[in-house]
Structure formats: structure tokens, C-alpha cells
Design a protein around this nucleic acid. Structure first.
Length: 755
RNA sequence: AGGCACGUAGCUCAGUGGCUAGAGCGCCGCCUUGACACGGCGGAGGUCGGCGGUUCAAUCCCGCCCGUGCCUACCA
């Protein structure tokens, strides 16, 4: 509606354009999500504007209507003058603005007394309907019950006491207007003050006539003369002009000079804005539909406590928001594109709508547009005619539909059996900034419809911050989209990065993490290539080194599974990654590779190593699969897909006891650790001698304490093979650190060129 | 102003009432290794924001303070 341009479009054309645009956006998003390998069942795809969702949202309304949880009323509502629609509390943003206290002298009726109010909104002076101060404020106690007289417009308005007035703010006495802010609305209701609505829906001051009913003035001619200068102006323009008028002596309510006392005094204050709006919200009386929530804080809090929040402290945000609710949920929006509110209103003989007797749609006719279809029991020809009907033109707040996400998925509206099986849902993943909207309204709907929670777990992510730790936003121009990174690093690397972020913790975007992810993918590729290149026959796993490694692998599966079950996918990834890198590729694989190739090993020992390598790859791939779907699927396809008769790793069973059946425990759980320590000592000896780790060793002496030497024996063959030691001796030494080997008298072979 | 979270190596982040506080990146040195140089080995680098307290023992628990982010309130 801004700048008036879209108004050239008809409602129908506008809606048509919206459909076209959303279809394009959907395509883009779907392509991105598929590229990012989101494991979505695309057969269940929906759009919140499609028939199924419109039916669900409208059915939700009808259910709430039947249960009397919704009502329509004409009352001051937060209104965005640019978007020209009502907004809900949850869509409001506070912004710091510089304003100014304007001190304005009022008269007191039938006396020569005066008072000075302080206001930041002098342009609403014509809408002043009262004056109030704190009951204990000695300065003003004598004025309560009498009338003040406004300058310029000479309107007599009641002076009343209110606890809400702060004696320390401004002058301690203030004018009540219809409507400057939420407190004005409160006073207007409590004191049953007059309604002098000045600001119109378009944000401009309307036409009013002082001296007419509701616009009383002691001097209507003067009032109208002044007001003529303001009518039609927007709020900002009107403020400028009214201040000029107040600087003149003519408008004084006391005859003692200009009403404006001194110069306006700049101050900082917070003002409510629609989250997308450029100008402050106004309170404008309009007819709106509301969902009654203010009387349901207790059950809302109870349902919130039933949900398991991850991380737990996010529950506090829900609680704080719910406890702080101040208004029922305004669900009607004055927009073209959206889900229509499925009601009509009967017209009386004079053609006036009876809003107190709305006609709801029948459940069987959903989805329905009351602007296109006649009310039940009426003919289309009766639309707009006396004795006929009109259709509701408003649409729902988008959250009214989005709050039904679990029910949309479970087909609450048309498949009770499916709904019973899928509701409440297991998990809601979402961002922290929409706890007060998406999460809150979804919980509210589940409560109102079925006295249920909508989902058992709420997973609240953190934010991705830009590299300077600032929140990404359009206005800062620091927003990143995933596609360029998917192209540069691959989808798996991007998923590695997002999968590393802890729930509820903000993470600065860092390309380094993508590089690490890409490196992991490459390493997996190479490790997979090596493991599956070992073609010799698989034998039972019996070698001590292999058994010790398998025992560690089994423990890893348990830790990773537990982490996933706790929704701690970052820990699951970290556990698997660390194990893969340090225990598998750096340790076990290096130790077992010679034996697996068959160099000097018997068939049983070789087969044991090959079996272990295959098992490790098989299990690790499946542990990685949720985070790195592409590379794990690729490697899986090389051999396991056919072997297992399961083409996709993503449908293979999760690793568990079945993978470890019949494999014995190692004689010594620390066997792998001992072997690693021995290799490390020999590598260090080579590094000290500045020869490559691959250099053959003619002979060396491996030193260690007696227990250590005993423990190394079962895996010594693998150690010597991995380090290419030809002959060795063991020597008992007491002067080494615990668990550490020493290498003595190493004689390295001459370097030989490999052919 | 209140609430919640965070503050750990140059950077991005793990972590625990007790072994010498960790990883990756970056940095320095060595190794052109046979799945992988997008690799391997070795190394330097930290008063765990500050000050108090509880404890035999605190980076971790408690209090206060400083800084950062978010939420809520203030909106004359």
C-alpha cells in the first residue's frame, strides 16, 4: 500500500501476482533445499496459501468460534499507517527515538488558574480528552474533579487522578489523547472519556468540526480556525505547525501569552513500530477479530512447561512473553493476500451490518472466500443489499495459519486417524526470535483446539552472525546465502558447518569451518577408497589390535547415538569426527594397513584386519550420514549398497548391537593405545634423526617398563610393520614416564628409491 | 531498568569441582610416505573477563563488577 502504487491493482490481480511470486520463490527454495540435501519428504509439500492450509486455518477459526475463543470488536488497535493494517503485539518492535517534551499551558475552567502539561505529541492536542496527575501529587491535588481547558481549541476536559502518572516525568501532569499510546487507551476506557479520533488510517489528521457533538469547545470558531491549519497534514507536519501556533499568543487558554512554555526539550524515548514499518504505530479504532488469550495465561504457561525445550533456558523466553501478554491476539489483517476470515455479516433493513451476529461458514464449504461466495442461506444477489449480507474482507494474520503447522502436517482437518498418530509432533525446530510468534501461537492453538501441546520438543537454534559478530540483516547488507558456499565447498561442508553449531548458541560465520568440513569429506573419500581397495577375503575378527579397535568403535556408537537422541547433533558430529580422524585414520588404519595388504601376514590375520576396516567404514559412514549425506552415500554405493541390498545409506539401519554380534572383547582394552604410543616413539626417533616416517629401520631397541612391554607384545607385529622396523629388541627401563616408550640405538636403512 | 545467555590460545569453538585446560584453523620446524601434501610427525602459544566467597581443591558453584548479545519493560 506504500506510495499508493499497488492500489492501481485490483484485489484479484494483486492476489494473482502474489501467487505467481510465491510459486517462483518456492522453486528457488526447493532447489536450494534439495541441493543442501534436506531430508524432506517432498510428497508432503504444502504452501500456507494452498487449499489444504486455507481449509485448516479456516477450520481452526470455526472451531475457535464455536468455542467462543474469538470475538470481533471495534476498539483502538495498533495500526500501521503505511501498511494500513492492524498489527499484533508480537509484531511490534521498540525503537529508540529522539523526541521532545513540549510544555504547554492549559487553563482551568471557571478560574484564572493554569497548569502546564509536558507532551511529546503536541499534534494530538486537538484530541485531548482529559488531564491526569498522580493522586498524591500535592501540586495538582486541588485540580482533580475540575475541567482543564486546552489551548487553541478551548476544549474543556476532565482532570482526574491516576496511579499511572509519574510525578517525576515531565511536569508530573499530562494530557490524555485519543490516542497517543497504550496508556491513553487504558485511561480512555477506565475514565469513559470522549473519543476524539484525530489520526486517520492513512496517518493524516482527519476533518473535524469543533462545536459539534463530541468536539465541545468554549470557542468553536477559534478552534476550527486553528484546526484548519492542521487538517489533512500527517503527524510530523501537524506537529511542526501546531508548535508554531502554540508560540503565538492567540491560542492561549488563560490569556497570559503563548501557550508553549520555553523551548521543546529533547529527550530519548522508545516508540512502538510495526516490525516492518517506517513510521510509529498509531492507535486507531477499527473493527478487528481477536483470539481471547488474556484469560488463558495459566494454561498457556502450563503447556509451555510440558514441552521440552532445547536448550532448556529457551523456556524462560516463552514464559516471560506469556506472562507479559497485554492484549488479546489480533488476528485480522486489512490486506488482500492471505487466508480469508470465513464469516459474513447480516445487513439490517437500513443496510447496516450487524457485527454482533456474524455468520460463520460451514465446515463442508472450506476453503471459502466470503467475498466471492454468498453467506449460507443467502443468494449472491443479496450481497450488499438491505436485509442481505456482506462478506468479511479481512484476512488472517499469517501466524494464524503458521500456528497450525503441526495440524497441517497431521491432516487434522480431514484425516482424524492420521492426526491421532502424528499429533503432538515430536519436534519443532526454529529460531529464537520467533518464540513469541511461531512457538507461542502454535502452543496457543494446540491448547484451544485440543487442550494439548503441539510438539514434545522445541529445538531453538542460535543465530548465524556475520564474521564481526553482528546479526545478519538486510539493512546492514551483511546477509549471506548458502548457495555460493555450497558451490565452493560442497553441500556436505556447509552441513558440517551448520551441524557444528550448538542449539541456542549464536555462531559467527567463519569460512575456516567450511574448509575443515571439506577436508573431512576428502579424508573420508580417501579412507573409503583405501579400505574398499583391500580385496582379500574377510575372516573373523580375532587379532588383538582389531578387537581393541572394535571395542572403541562400539563405545563411539553408543556415545553418538546418545548425543543424537538428546538432539545434540553437534556433539554427535564432533565425537564421530574426532574418532574417525584420530582413532581410525591416524591410528588403527596406519597400524593395520600392512597386515590388511597381506605383507607377511597369514590369511586369518589379514582377513581379520580387512573385516575390521570394512566394519569401521560401514559404521562410521552411517554415523556421518545425517551430517554428510553426499559423501557417505557415495562411498556406500561403492560396495555396501549391493552387499546389504540397501541402495541408500539413508535408509540403512542405524549402527548398533547388530553390527558387533559375535565379536570378542580384546584381551586388553588399552592395546590400541599401547600400539599408538609405540609408533609415536618410533616416529619421534625418526623425526629427531630428520628422516621420513617411511624410512626403513634396520634395528632398534624399544624401551619401557615391564608392564608396558608385556602389553605391547600382542600388537608388536603391527607396530613394527607400520614403522618398517626389521629387527628389534625390548629393554626394560624404569626411568620413563608412565605409558611412554623410549627408542634407543635406532639404525636407519639407507634411503632407497621406490620404483 | 529487569530477565536470560555469553566472555576459555591470534581466530572459530569444545570442556570439566581435582591428572600438566582441549580441538581445528593460523604460526614455526621436519618429512615430496605406499588411501590422502585437502597429508603425516613435532613444537610454540592461555593470569579460562575482573574482584571477592564457599571448598582440602574453582575455569567450572555462589556474590558483586565490567563487557557483549538477545528478550521484556519504560514510551506524558
Amino acid at each position: 500500500a506504500r506510495k499508493g502504487r499497488p492500489r492501481l491493482l485490483s484485489r484479484e490481480n494483486f492476489i494473482e501476482l502474489c501467487h505467481r511470486l510465491t510459486a517462483e520463490d518456492e522453486k528457488t527454495f526447493k532447489a536450494l533445499w534439495q541441493r543442501a540435501a534436506l531430508s524432506v519428504d517432498w510428497s508432503l509439500e504444502y504452501a500456507t496459501i494452498d487449499d489444504h492450509c486455507r481449509r485448516t486455518a479456516q477450520l481452526s477459526f470455526l472451531d475457535l468460534f464455536r468455542k467462543e475463543h474469538v470475538y470481533n470488536s471495534s476498539s483502538p488497535t495498533m495500526w500501521d499507517v503505511d501498511f494500513q493494517t492492524a498489527v499484533a503485539q508480537a509484531e511490534v518492535d521498540d525503537r529508540e527515538l529522539t523526541g521532545a517534551y513540549h510544555r504547554i499551558e492549559f487553563g482551568v475552567e471557571d478560574s484564572d488558574e493554569s497548569l502546564v502539561v509536558a507532551t511529546t505529541r503536541p499534534e494530538l492536542l486537538a484530541a485531548c480528552v482529559g488531564v491526569t496527575a498522580h493522586p498524591d501529587d500535592a501540586r495538582y491535588r486541588g485540580l482533580f474533579g475540575r475541567n482543564a481547558v486546552t489551548p487553541l481549541f478551548r476544549a474543556p476536559v476532565p482532570i482526574f487522578p491516576s496511579e499511572l502518572a509519574d510525578p517525576d516525568k515531565g511536569t508530573g501532569i499530562l494530557m490524555v489523547c485519543t490516542f497517543g499510546d497504550a496508556t491513553d487507551v487504558l485511561w480512555w476506557r477506565e475514565q469513559r472519556l470522549a473519543l476524539r479520533q484525530l489520526v486517520q488510517r492513512n496517518g493524516r489528521l482527519g476533518d473535524v468540526t469543533f462545536g459539534s457533538e463530541g468536539w465541545e469547545s468554549l470557542d468553536p470558531d477559534a478552534a476550527n480556525r486553528f484546526y484548519a491549519e492542521l487538517a489533512g497534514k500527517n503527524v510530523k507536519q501537524a506537529q511542526k505547525r501546531v508548535v508554531e501556533l502554540l508560540r503565538g499568543p492567540d491560542g492561549s487558554a488563560t490569556g497570559s501569552g503563548p501557550p508553549l512554555q520555553g523551548e521543546p526539550e529533547p529527550m530519548e524515548h522508545t516508540v512502538k513500530f510495526y516490525e516492518k514499518g517506517p513510521r510509529p504505530l498509531e492507535f486507531v479504532p477499527t473493527r478487528q477479530w481477536f483470539v481471547r488469550l488474556m484469560d488463558k495465561k495459566e494454561p498457556l504457561l502450563a503447556k509451555g512447561a510440558e514441552v521440552k525445550w532445547h536448550p532448556e533456558f529457551m523456556h524462560v523466553r516463552y514464559r516471560d512473553w506469556t506472562e507479559g501478554l497485554q492484549l488479546d491476539w489480533c488476528v485480522s489483517r486489512q490486506r488482500h493476500f492471505g487466508v480469508p476470515i470465513p464469516v459474513w455479516y447480516p445487513l439490517d433493513d437500513a443496510g447496516e451490518p450487524d457485527f454482533a451476529r456474524p455468520i460463520p461458514a460451514g465446515a463442508e464449504q472450506l476453503p471459502v472466500d466470503p467475498m466471492a461466495v454468498p453467506a449460507p442461506g443467502y443468494e449472491e444477489t443479496q450481497r450488499g443489499k438491505p436485509g442481505g449480507f456482506i462478506g468479511e474482507a479481512d484476512v488472517f494474520d499469517t501466524w494464524f495459519t503458521s500456528s497450525m503447522t503441526p495440524q497441517i502436517g497431521s491432516h487434522w482437518a480431514d484425516d482424524p486417524e492420521r492426526h491421532a498418530g502424528l499429533f503432538p509432533a515430536d519436534v519443532r525446530p526454529q529460531g529464537p526470535e520467533i518464540i513469541r510468534t511461531w512457538a507461542f501461537y502454535t502452543i496457543a492453538k494446540a491448547l484451544l483446539h485440543e487442550d494439548s501441546i503441539p510438539w514434545k520438543n522445541a529445538l531453538i537454534s542460535g543465530w548465524v552472525l556475520d564474521p564481526d559478530r553482528k546479526k545478519m540483516s538486510k539493512s546492514l547488507g551483511n546477509v549471506q546465502t548458502p548457495l555460493p558456499y555450497i558451490e565452493r565447498f560442497g553441500a556436505d561442508a556447509c552441513r558440517y558447518w551448520s551441524g557444528s553449531a550448538r542449539l541456542g548458541v549464536d555462531t559467527a560465520f567463519d569460512e575456516k569451518v567450511l574448509k575443515v568440513g571439506k577436508r573431512l569429506v576428502t579424508k573420508l573419500f580417501n579412507a573409503g577408497k583405501f579400505v574398499l581397495a583391500q580385496e582379500s577375503e574377510v575372516q573373523p575378527i580375532t587379532a588383538e589390535l582389531d578387537l581393541a579397535f572394535v571395542a572403541e568403535l562400539r563405545a563411539l556408537v553408543e556415545r553418538t547415538t546418545a548425543a543424537f537422541e538428546d538432539f545434540n547433533f553437534a556433539l554427535a558430529l564432533q565425537e564421530t569426527e574426532t574418532f574417525f580422524w584420530s582413532r581410525f585414520t591416524d591410528s588403527y588404519l596406519e597400524l593395520a594397513k600392512t597386515r590388511a595388504r597381506g605383507d607377511g601376514a597369514d590369511a586369518a590375520a589379514q582377513g581379520s584386519a580387512v573385516a575390521t576396516l570394512r566394519l569401521a567404514l560401514d559404521v562410521l559412514l552411517r554415523l556421518f550420514a545425517p551430517t554428510l549425506p553426499y559423501i557417505s552415500e557415495e562411498i556406500w554405493s561403492w560396495r555396501f549398497a549391493e552387499e546389504r541390498g540397501e541402495p541408500s545409506i539413508h535408509r540403512a539401519p542405524w549402527p548398533g548391537a547388530a553390527d558387533f554380534g559375535g565379536i570378542a572383547e580384546p584381551a586388553n582394552a588399552a592395546s590400541l593405545e599401547r600400539a599408538v604410543a609405540a609408533v609415536q616413539a618410533i616416529h619421534k626417533a625418526k623425526a629427531d634423526a630428520q628422516v621420513s616416517a617411511g624410512r626403513e629401520v634396520e634395528s632398534l631397541v624399544l624401551a619401557g617398563d615391564a608392564a608396558l612391554l608385556e602389553e605391547i607384545k600382542p600388537v608388536l607385529g603391527d607396530v613394527l610393520a607400520a614403522t618398517r622396523v626389521h629387527t628389534h629388541q625390548l629393554r626394560e627401563a624404569g626411568d620413563l614416564e608412565e605409558g611412554v616408550f623410549g627408542v634407543e640405538d635406532a639404525r636407519f636403512a639407507e634411503r632407497t628409491d621406490r620404483s
